[in-house]
Design a protein around this nucleic acid. Structure first.
Lengths: 256, 256
DNA sequence: TTTGACCTTCACGCTGCGTAAAGGTGTATC
DNA sequence: GATACACCTTTACGCAGCGTGAAGGTCAAA
């Protein structure tokens, strides 16, 4: 059986444009073209198209499909597993989204203004999600799942007042650090006050404090470019200075 | 506080390109531009950007966000509810996808060739999903949820042999219909054989047969353009002819 | 005055096609 | 054999939300 574009398109339930596009990107070329340049497809092309459409239904990109259908079975399995991981991640994100949207709806309906407590809760939830996305993996690897869960739970349980307090505390850490850095001495009074404020700040998020964890976090500020970028806005050496101050504060490093 | 593009971009964690794009599509314009054409943002723009980013996290399109943030709260709630529906639908689709991908992985891993029984199961699942998507709604409305569930369950429980049998049967229906249509008489022997084959075919999918349901399906073949398009490939009047034949077969219409 | 870090406006690229536009081909009918 | 009409072709812009140059002006510090 031979098919022109439209016949094959009807058979497979796709548009002729799609077939021409598949020809263009070389994922499905016609068996031959007739004397007038018409595309002619044969049985092999029908089978191949069915495979393509099957994977397309699974949400695989055409680029990946191209590899999949010309790869041996074991490669295909690997590729599909990777694809499944992506889908699972997508579902988690989607569930979070839905929860957030529902929270927002509740808040918008609950009060007519947009700045009440419920809306605020929605934002907090978002903050946790963002933190998870950005730093979750590294932090989990370093301090274990439990610490992270507890930190998240703690943010969610914060009252609005507590949340404001912690935000103000964070600002105070920054301003004190900015002042302390002028002195150039991480063992100085202001620097040690900054370290202490920083301890107070993290204990808002951590369920228990340990010198080692505090020092570990300080190291991370220097090692991780995202944290470093944050502190760089205060001063080019802010991250390093804060690390030194914290190490001294935690008693893990002698004064100069 | 006033911000240039980059300052605001850093503050909000977006790119400068994004801010320029938001200016371009008129979703966030700077408060003013200085004498050199630099974009200058103020506090109001910061707040607006935060709102935009919040909705963006929820997966709302920029176009919709534009409406959302300038609409009163009750409109926003409606819009968000609509958005939630979309997300929920998306999740259902995603779950189906994941199930299918997992089936396919299992099939590809189970045997190294791509044409064994497991793979076949994956395809059957896909067929059901496709049917659901295309016709599920109408069929459910006409015959109720239960009938549809049973039909789906029956397809899944078919052995490969049964599935081949039903596919062959479908072809036989078509070829007999094509022959019968030549005679022009829907009450003729061949036409009634086609109707009988068609009954056999649908009883593969339906848990119980009734003349009325059979006749209803025949009407649908004519009324629904997708079914009609399928039968049109046999003959321009195939759908009508089959309907007549079935009505006579089911004893719901006298012979001419 | 010379860096170097900012800023500006184009403008193309990404995905997977939809949707014309402008023109050639095939075939049934008058 | 002309006409109509359904089919085919290539070319190319448009969609969302920016990323990523390119080419060139601006500003503060050294």
């Amino acid at each position: 059986m031979e098919y022109t574009v439209q016949k094959l398109a009807q058979l497979a339930g796709v548009s002729t444009r799609t077939l021409r596009y598949y020809d263009e990107i070389e994922i499905l070329k016609p068996a031959r073209t007739n004397s007038s340049g018409y595309r002619i497809y044969g049985q092999r092309e029908v089978d191949r198209l069915q495979q393509i459409l099957f994977y397309r239904e699974l949400g695989v990109s055409l680029d990946q499909i191209k590899e999949l259908i010309s790869a041996p079975a074991f490669d295909a399995a690997d590729a599909l597993k990777e694809h499944r991981e992506k889908l699972l991640e997508k579902r988690i994100q989607l569930d979070l989204l839905i929860a957030n949207v529902e929270k927002t709806i509740a808040s918008v309906e609950g009060r007519t203004t947009m700045s009440d407590k419920e809306k605020f809760e929605g934002f907090k939830k978002k903050m946790i999600d963002d933190n998870e996305k950005k730093y979750g993996k590294e932090i989990r690897e370093k301090y274990g799942d439990e610490t992270v869960e507890k930190a998240n739970a703690k943010v969610m349980n914060m009252t609005q007042e507590e949340h404001e307090a912690v935000t103000q505390l964070a600002e105070k850490v920054n301003s004190t650090l900015a002042e302390a850095i002028q002195s150039g001495n991480p063992a100085g009074e202001l620097a040690q006050e900054a370290a202490d404020l920083h301890k107070q700040w993290i204990t808002f998020y951590w369920s228990e404090y340990s010198k080692e964890a505090h020092a570990g976090l300080a190291e991370m500020y220097v090692a991780d470019e995202r944290f470093k970028a944050y502190y760089d806005k205060i001063h080019p050496n802010a991250a390093e200075f804060l690390r030194e101050a914290i190490l001294i504060y935690a008693g893990l490093k002698g004064e100069y």
